[in-house]
Amino acid sequence: MKDFRELETEIKKASDKFTNIESINEFRIKFLGKKGIISLEMKELASLSGDEIIASKTEELNSEELEKKLNSETLDITLSTSKSYGTIHPISQVIEEVITIFGDLDFFVAEGPEVETDYNNFTALNTSEHHPARQMHDTFYVETETDGMPNVLRTHTSPVQIRSMLKQKPPIRLIAPGKTFRCDNDQTHSPMFHQVEGLVIDQESNMSHLKGCLEIFLKTFFETDKLNMRFRPSHFPFTEPSAEVDIGYTKKGNQLIIGEGEDWLEILGCGMVHPNVLENVNINSNEYQGYAFGMGIERLAMLKYGISDLRTFFDSDLRWNKHYGFSPLNIPSIIGDLS
């Protein structure tokens, strides 16, 4: 940059030399033109500022200060506070798993009340008043009546079949999880327990579909590709043929390995819906057929999650609930833990 006094002198000198218009023009071009000395100097002057210096100095000082501050701000990261979630009861968890698996196979969830009519719980299910199978049920009775018969606490979830079939015509695919009751209380029985019922009615579903259905379910539920499954004849008044299903297992130490092995565990009862049941709900048994199955939720939970005692489910021991309960965020799904 030029010294302004020098420039002033230079301009004076040059102006002193003005002799003609031409020289004035020369002067104008030299000093005042677009690319004249003054113009250039002005530009240079405009670009001249302290911002840069200030900015760089400020940053330097700021970061020094921050450094100091950070050094004084250390926290003991080994200290902690706690945030806890509650837990979902294993019964709820297993019911949701069962719903998720059958939902994927296009079963909807049906419901019925826990107090049932004798007709829905027994008679409509082809179990007449004096059928010996009734004695195996150890029924709880209540004081209200329907059509002259005392109402009962449902002994199984099967009456939901009746309620649903009266409401809906085939094709039907449903499951019905819920509470069930039997007048029985010992090491291996609880007066209240949970079942899930399944029902499929259409024109062709047969024993081989029943087998296929249960195989997918059990494999998905127990999260195993290997599954030894055994059907053996049994008797339920509302199915014919009837079967009980066992799955193979082995024991490794205290752990049950489901699916493999030659030892058998009874897991559920099932069969082809008895034509009398279909006729009782006004479905033509010559045109329609299908299968039904029922299984104990607690048993599924015990086998899958290694819970050894049935009665602990209802004991409300918070130590048990916190141990065997599930995170509320662990909703059975592809994202959740159900593979």
Binding site: G86, S92, L153, P191, L329
Partner: peptide, 25 residues
């Protein structure tokens, strides 16, 4: 109605409650 029950269950458990299942009697 069914979803409502399940949603309620998960919500309540998410705000620190432990779920119990007690007898109907």
């Amino acid at each position: 109605a069914q979803k409502k029950l399940m949603k309620a269950r998960h919500f309540i458990a998410s705000i620190e409650y432990d779920e119990l299942v007690t007898f109907s009697f």
